[in-house]
Structures are given as C-alpha cells and as structure tokens.
Design a protein around this nucleic acid. Structure first.
Lengths: 221, 221
DNA sequence: ATCAACGAGATTGTTGACAAGATGTTCCGA
DNA sequence: TCGGAACATCTTGTCAACAATCTCGTTGAT
C-alpha cells in the first residue's frame, strides 16, 4: 500500500483527477464533492483535497458554499456565450500577434494541421479532427507569445468542457467548422494580422451561434 | 482586545488589507510575507493568513514558492504590456456591447462623467480625475452586462496597481488621456458600437505606448 | 581571503482530534 | 395524515502542536 498523497503533490493530483473526471463525464454539474470521500478514493489526505477544491473554485470549476461543501458548478448557456465572447476577444488578439510573430517552424506546423484536418473530415475521423482542432488553438496562442492571454484562455476553458462536448457531437459540425479553421491557418501562416483576427472572430461568432441554437434545442419539449 | 479573526472572515480581511497595502505603497514587489508576522499584525490566525495568501496567489498578486513562503510578485514591463493588451481586447468587447445595451440612466451618467472630467483637468484636480477615470471604466463594463469579462478584468488589474501609479504621475498625462476618454463616452452614450470599440482600443494602445516609454525611461542611467 | 561544512533559529508544512454547523430521521400531537 | 420538535448523523471548519525544511551567520581549513 502506497502512502497517502499529501501537500503540493496530492493537491495537484486531486485537482487534475477531478478535471479529468469532469471531461470524461464521470462528474456532472451539481454533484457534491465530499472531502472525505475524495480523500479515500484518491488516496490523499483531507488537507490535500481541501486545497485542491480551493484551486478548482478559483478556476470556477467548482462552487464552494461555506459549511455546505463543494459541488461541480453548472454553467448556464448565457454564461457559456459570455465565456465564448471573451475567448473571441482574446483569441483575436493572439491570432493577430501570431500572424506577425510566428516563426517558420510554427507556420509549417500550422499548414500541416490544415492538411491533416481536411483529411480527417474526409475520413470521418472525428477524434483526430478534435485533437487537431485543439492543437491548432494551442499553436496560435503559443506563436503569439502572449503568455497572459494564454493563462486567461486556459481559465476560461475550464468550466466549458461540458458544452464543448455537446457541440462537437452535432452532426455536420466538423464540415461546418473546417473552412473557418482553414481561414485562420491561411491568415496566420500567410502573415496577415487583420485577416487572422477576422478569421478567429468569425469562427468564434459561429460557435456562439451554435451555443445559442443548442439552448433553443434544449429548451424545446 | 477583540478575538482573532478566523476562517472566511479573516481570510477576506487579510487579503483585502494586503491589496490595500500594495496600492498605498506599504508593500513593494519582492517583499516577503511571513505568515506569523501577518497573523500578529492583522490579528488573524495563521490559518486565515495562509488561505488569504493562496487567494492572492490565484490572483497573481503574490508568488508562493514551496517551503520558502510568499512574496509580492514583481511585474515586468513586458508583462504589463501583455496585461494591457488583454485588457484592451476585453474592454473593446465591453465597450461594443455597452454601446448597444446601456440604459438611459447609464448613458446619462457617462455624459456627466465626461463633463466632470473636463472640469477636473481644467482645475488640475488629479485625484478627482483619477476617480472619474476608474468610475468610467467600471460603468462601461457594468453597462455591457458582460459578467465574465468583468471578472477577468478585475483579475488583470490586481498585479498592475504599481504601474498605474507610476503612469498617472507623469506630467501632462491627464490632458493627453482626456480626449480619449471623451471619445469612449461619446461613442458608448451615442450608441455606436464600432466607434466605441475603436475608442477603447485607441485609449489602451496609448497606455501601452506609455508603458513602453516608461520602460525606456527606467532603463536610462 | 575564499570556501565548505555546520548548526541554531526562523518559517512553512502536516496531522489528528475536536468544535460547530447542516442534513436527515423519528416520533409525537393535532 | 400532516407538521414540526427533538435527536442522530454526516460533513466541514478550526486549532495547536509537531515535523520538515530553509536561511544565515560562524567556524575552521586551505
């Protein structure tokens, strides 16, 4: 039997495990997170769990109400729209800077992602497409050199996993987003800052539309 | 003698007091924050202080290195520029939305702030001008209804207080920023979203210029 | 004079037990 | 049957002491 995880190590481990569980759907919004339960199932001390929950609360992933414990925070559609608007503002900034600052290696990887994305959509390889999508956004942010924006965007994504999940499942979604992603790639790799910002904005405006229509769909009886 | 502040109450009190001390210059970047010292001088328990420091670390105001304690984080000019770029992106979003969503009361207060600002600059009332400036930014964000952006902007401002301080002191600064502020007011109150975003961007681009030139000034021998 | 090893004191990290609040259950009276 | 008072249980919050680690000044050898 291994020792209990404690302090910094356990804190990070517990937080990561909960984030993971949220992505995989093992934890659903509203679910209670009892300190002792988590401590036992993850083999950590209660102290480590408490600290991990504080971290997750700072990321707006869980909600802690005094004397009543922590639960996974539910994100309303309205809030998801606002989060995506902020993402749009920050990703426009990153795309614009990336267009001028990216080095040749980064531009080459961007173009390669474009090629692979076309292929993935043609093949119906949704998992591959999703991974490429994520790498594309990462790479644009990385190439921009905007560390502050990178941290902000990471934070914004935390509570959104559930929505991204629902959206990616919609039929025909990859075919719709592919040209938008290609436009971002062309503009950034081609070194056109204004076009890059416009392409990023167009893409995220479309995500917002999807979110809103998913709200209407959910509300229907 | 009152009881020691404990838990949630003490935590918030200590965090606020440190934020305040930073604004007023009582704490300088790099300064160590020893838990027991803070506990005694603020009349709180060490536990409350620890939690407050965690909160401040989540806001990037202090830096905690394991086993070595917390210190006020220093913000480089480069990072200040990046922070301001993010502020620019988010405030453009808010200004744009505020231009269409502000109600009549809010537009009236905006116009009033414009009048008062002119007067403050004419009178050389720098404190008044600074307060109006802060209220202007608050009001635009409030009128936008963008709660997520509001929280992000709050976070971004935390580590910046020192720089704002240095900037506001530069001679002729209010006269320079006044027309920019008036342009924001006109566009938002007048209901022109694109002009509002442009005005906000122009204002923050100018702040970035000031930051960069202040770097050059500091570097000079 | 420089440097490494050492140790005392200072400071943070961790633990386990207890206090206190919230939640759920039972049981009594109307 | 319903309402609610009293009780039992679950869960989080707090504390004080202890353990682990770091800092810094001292000493002694080269």
């Amino acid at each position: 039997m291994t020792d209990k995880l404690t302090g910094a190590a356990g804190r990070e481990y517990v937080a990561n495990t909960i984030r993971q569980a949220l992505r995989s759907g093992d934890l659903v919004p509203g679910q209670r997170l009892v300190e002792l339960d988590l401590a036992e199932s993850y083999g950590a001390t209660r102290g480590a769990v408490r600290e991990a929950l504080q971290d997750l609360a700072a990321e707006d992933i869980v909600e802690i109400v005094p004397r009543r414990g922590a639960r996974i925070r539910a994100v309303s559609v309205e809030e998801a729209v606002q989060i995506t608007e902020c993402r749009s503002a920050l990703e426009q900034l990153c795309a614009r800077k990336a267009a001028t600052r990216a080095d040749e290696e980064q531009r080459a990887e961007l173009r390669l992602i474009g090629v692979d994305m076309r292929q993935a959509v043609a093949d119906g390889a949704w998992d591959t497409y999703s991974a490429l999508n994520q790498r594309l956004h990462e790479l644009v942010i990385e190439a921009s050199g905007q560390e502050v924006a990178r941290r902000q965007l990471e934070r914004l994504n935390g509570p959104m996993v559930r929505f991204q999940f629902r959206l990616a499942l919609r039929p025909g979604r990859p075919a719709q987003s592919l040209p938008q992603h290609l436009a971002i790639i062309d503009a950034v790799a081609g070194g056109d800052p204004d076009a890059a910002a416009r392409a990023a904005a167009a893409h995220l405006d479309d995500v917002i539309e999807q979110l809103k229509s998913s709200a209407a769909q959910t509300a229907a009886p």
